[in-house]
Amino acid sequence: MRIGSSRLRVEWGHLAFVLAIAAFCAWYWLDARAASTSTQNLLLIQPAALLALFLCAVIATRLVNVERVADEAKSGEESAGAAAPWEALRHSGALRGVLFAALLGAYVAAVLFAGFDLATFVFLAAGMFLLGERRPLVLVGFAALFAAALSYSFKNMLSVPVPTIFF
């Protein structure tokens, strides 16, 4: 962001993360106070939340920098680079991370109604495909064997009552 001969340089992703932590700490502090303002309840939470908010403020101020723009051409190049965030996301490998996180979320949401065995099989096959495995035998074979072994050993050997379809 440019203001006159100065440019505001912000690490947006990091700033959003710090603000999210700050928002959680502030909410949790208020929630704890709403539950009770007694010393027993707030003895640790209140000072810890205030310290966390102070640390968030310290870190956030370091993520916002004002720089003088000396070279117009250089600035033009940088803004052109910033115009393609999607490409940057793709090249940094972050897209793969986002997709994998979404897949993990879907897997966790599915285990109860699809069964651990079936959901694990689909998650393993899809996860391996997403990370670059293209051999059908490995995708299906390993996913099926590993899902079966896990489901069987947790349910029958460790007596963990995981919901399953086939075991």
Binding site: Y107, F116, M128, E133, F146, F154, V162
Partner: peptide, 28 residues
Amino acid sequence: PVRVLVPAIFAVSVFGGYAITGNIAGPA
């Protein structure tokens, strides 16, 4: 290979999470 190892570790961890809590709270 990492492409096999990573999903496998996540799957074991989801099972492990369920084993510890005995309900969906662990995986979640």
